[in-house]
């Protein structure tokens, strides 16, 4: 496990696998893709938690605690907002039907109303 070579192989494998998979992601999904990978990069949370498995002095303890909060913010926020975005893309492509038009207009109003609550 402590073998640097093994870690390098894992790095290379993941980079190459990620590269070829992500090349195929349609450009329409690039924002959610970036938001999701951004969440994944908050995986340093694991490293921050590992630090707490042993005793630390106060300075390092404070720093590590900050790292836990920051990384959690990154991970949780990233996945949550990606999910919110991807919901928009799941809508089936349909021509507005005479019956469905009203429904659709309500869809449009909902976000703008909640948005106007924000200052």
């Amino acid at each position: 496990m402590n073998d640097l070579l093994l870690l390098a192989v894992i790095f290379a494998f993941s980079f190459v696998a990620g590269y070829f998979l992500i090349l195929r992601v349609p450009t329409q999904l690039h924002t959610p893709l970036m938001s999701m990978t951004n969440a994944v990069s908050g995986v340093t949370l694991l490293g921050a938690l590992l630090l707490f498995a042993a005793r630390m002095d106060t300075l390092h303890r404070t720093l590590s605690l900050a790292a836990v909060i920051l990384a959690t913010f990154n991970v949780a926020g990233g996945f949550a907002v990606t999910d919110r975005m991807l919901k928009f893309f799941r809508k089936e492509g349909k021509m507005p039907q005479p019956g469905g038009a009203l429904e659709r207009r309500d869809d449009l109003k909902a976000p703008s109303q909640s948005a106007s609550d924000n200052p």
Binding site: M1, N2, L4, L6, L7, I10, F11, A12, F13, S14, F15, V16, A17, G18, Y19, I22, L23, L33, M34, T37, N38, V40, S41, V43, T44, L46, G47, L50, L51
Partner: peptide
């Protein structure tokens, strides 16, 4: 991930690196 010797962390980082590069 290399510093804390955690291969999952390394894999995640590498994949994000690949995505950002693309």
């Amino acid at each position: 991930g290399v510093v804390v010797q955690n291969s999952f962390l390394i894999a995640c980082g590498a994949m994000v690196g690949a995505s950002g590069t693309i």
